[in-house]
Design a protein around this nucleic acid. Structure first.
Length: 582
RNA sequence: CGGGGCGUAGCGCAGCCUGGUAGCGCACCUGCCUUGGGCGCAGGUGGUCGCCGGUUCAAAUCCGGCCGCCCCGACCA
């Protein structure tokens, strides 16, 4: 394509609304324009990059499954069948048609796929099935952010597997795992896979594919020693033991007037936060035999310098919530700052403690009396908790497998695979006969990849002050031919010739034939994500042009000088093999 | 939804506190000039100051309401 005819609206300055590198650069490079919060238009370059990403995804997915294309517009009944019409809440875009029928825009397609399966699958002989699509998803995010990172409309590859049994699911899951690796490898991303929380989908196992980036919003813990990696929502670790010696001590109450937070009590007592016990009262809904819901008070205690991991907590106590101040006083006998696991006013309050407190001695906690704390506490002696894992892993904690210190890093989630179970196949009535003629409900898996996130992550991973460079496999053009001065026919003709040769060789090239000053062309070329550049300039006098790789500029690698006639072939030779385009 | 910020020309911003003429840089148009890192000179085009209402002789500016966007949090397959 000729730049003089292409619509590539580059911006010299960063738009004020953009914060993250990828957001700023997508706008500056003319890839996208924002229509409203979390809704973007993809222009020439953005669309080309996404098409290349989708082509890779499609190729790899076709090796393990079959491509469908399902509706984005769903009747309410479909989501009511799985119960998600109610449980999805405000994240589901809902609308009514002219007859006042309820509809919604699909955020995923478990129900839709299961409905197809329910209508068509009859025999175990038809299994396994892997069905996928590349389709627009809608989610009414509470807060879209980070450019294309979290949006309300985006393109997702989602696939669904149907198997007769667990063993079959394992195989389908593994196929996806392998396909995802090939996809992300081909896209040129550097990523990690982590154990993930299954969330409200209620599956047995799930893994996320993450790209480490400061723009990311998912935190993971990973170990350099053994490779253990997990989403922080799920990560476990052995925290470093406090160094000072701990001995048995007499339990006693002491006044701590006005000292409420861990920090205040720590300063007041001169003890490190690790010697304190943080006590949090929660209310957990529990159903009795009649199905009546009772809210039960539960006290959770963790080490003073630890934080409670909300996801783990909700895993232990579904739908639990923090107690209100009134409830705290009612059950413990003290306001929030003086609560502790010993001498609770309401003796029926159950106490749960994070395992890190096991074996500790001589600790300090609230006395359940305003303005007082207890010291000399030994868990197991002074109170008998149920031991749980509820703490948030921190950087520096010991890996639970090898003991090495863990790193905690922000990441962008680019893919997620997980074993779903039978929730949707059951709800949507998917049934086949097994080899004994018995009715069986197939077990499902669900697997997603965010197309825009691949692009976003690639930019986050490959950028500098001047712009970014995409891996050749997903760049909108693999090379730009910059003609320094189109007013000089020798340069112009050499540029044309190289451009034609590149096209013939299957290299996707952009010819910068604009009547602009060289500075403008170089700045633009550096900005828009094209990995290779051939510069046709004054060296043309001796029949030469220059070849440079964008990412290498940070290393100040000088451009190579090549004869005009060899430049195109040399570049084609260096690009990774891929489907020819042009 | 809680906290913070912003909304003035296509983009980036000043003006607002202390009411009266809407301004700067870039971009854009015309001409000349220039061609290895967003070149120079000259002349131009372009704005219901987010919207509605109030105060006032007079509102971008003061007051009230609303809308939109961004950031932090909550939330999140």
């Amino acid at each position: 394509m000729r730049w003089s005819q292409a619509f590539i609206p580059t911006l010299r300055e960063a738009p004020a609304d953009a914060e993250s590198a990828s957001h700023i650069l997508l706008l500056r490079a003319g890839y996208v324009r924002q229509l409203s919060a979390g809704v973007y238009s993809y222009l020439l370059l953005g669309q080309r990059a996404l098409l290349k990403i989708m082509a890779i995804v499609r190729e790899e997915m076709d090796r393990i499954g079959q491509e469908f294309y399902l509706p984005a517009l769903h009747p309410a009944e479909l989501w009511q069948a799985s119960g998600r019409w109610e449980t999805m809440g405000d994240n589901l875009f809902r609308l009514k048609d002219r007859f006042q029928r309820d509809l919604c825009l699909g955020m995923t397609h478990e129900e839709n796929m299961a409905a197809i399966a329910a209508g068509e699958l009859r025999s175990y002989k038809q299994l396994p099935q892997i069905w996928y699509q590349i389709q627009t998803k809608f989610r009414d995010e509470p807060r879209p952010r980070g450019g294309l990172l979290r949006v309300r409309q985006f393109i997702m590859k989602d696939s669904y597997s149907f198997d007769l049994d667990e063993a079959g699911l394992d195989a389908s899951y593994q196929k996806h795992h392998d396909a995802y690796r090939r996809i992300f490898d081909r896209c040129g991303l550097s990523y990690v896979t982590v154990e993930a929380h299954s969330g409200q989908m209620g599956g047995s196992r799930s893994q996320e594919f993450m790209v480490i980036s400061p723009a990311g919003e998912d935190w993971i813990a990973n170990c350099r020693g053994c490779g253990y990696a997990a989403n922080l929502e799920k990560a476990e670790a052995a925290p470093a033991k406090p160094e000072e010696e701990e001995r048995d001590a007499e339990r006693e109450s002491f006044p701590t007037p006005g000292q409420r937070t861990i920090e205040e009590v720590s300063r007041f007592t001169g003890l490190p936060a690790s010697r304190l016990i943080k006590s949090l009262l929660y209310m957990a809904p529990v159903k009795d035999e009649q199905g009546v819901v009772n809210w039960e008070p539960r006290l959770l205690v963790v080490r003073g310098d630890d934080e409670v991991n909300e996801t783990k907590l909700l895993g232990l106590w579904p739908n639990a919530r923090p107690a209100h101040p009134v409830e705290i006083e009612q059950y413990t006998g003290a306001p929030a700052g003086s609560v502790g696991p010993v001498d609770l006013m309401d003796k029926s309050v159950k106490v749960y403690a994070d395992r890190t407190l096991s074996g500790r001695k001589n600790l300090v906690a609230g006395a359940n009396r305003e303005g007082y704390h207890l010291r000399g506490l030994t868990p197991g002696r002074d109170f008998q908790p149920e031991w749980v894992d509820a703490r948030q892993v921190r950087a520096g904690d010991g890996c639970k497998h090898c003991g090495q210190p863990l790193e905690v890093q922000p990441t962008i989630e680019i893919g997620h695979i997980f074993k779903l179970g039978r929730k949707y196949s059951q709800g949507l009535n998917v049934r086949v006969l097994d080899e004994h003629g018995k009715e069986a409900v197939p077990i499902m898996g669900s697997y997603g990849i965010g197309m825009e996130r691949i692009l976003t992550a690639a930019i986050e991973q490959n950028h500098d002050e001047q712009g970014f460079w995409l891996p050749p496999a997903i760049a909108p053009f693999q090379a730009v031919v910059s003609v320094v001065n189109t007013g000089e026919s020798e340069m112009r003709q050499a540029g044309e010739r190289i451009y034609e040769e590149l096209r013939r060789l299957g290299v996707d090239a952009l010819l910068d034939d604009r009547n602009e000053r060289p500075g403008v062309k170089f700045k633009d070329a550096d900005l828009i994500g094209i990995p290779w550049r051939i510069t046709v300039g004054k060296k043309i006098a001796s029949g030469e042009v220059e070849l440079s790789e964008r990412g290498k500029q940070v290393l100040k690698a000088p451009a190579e000088t090549l004869p005009v006639g060899k430049a195109a072939a040399e570049l084609a030779h260096r690009l990774p093999a891929g489907p020819p385009r042009g």
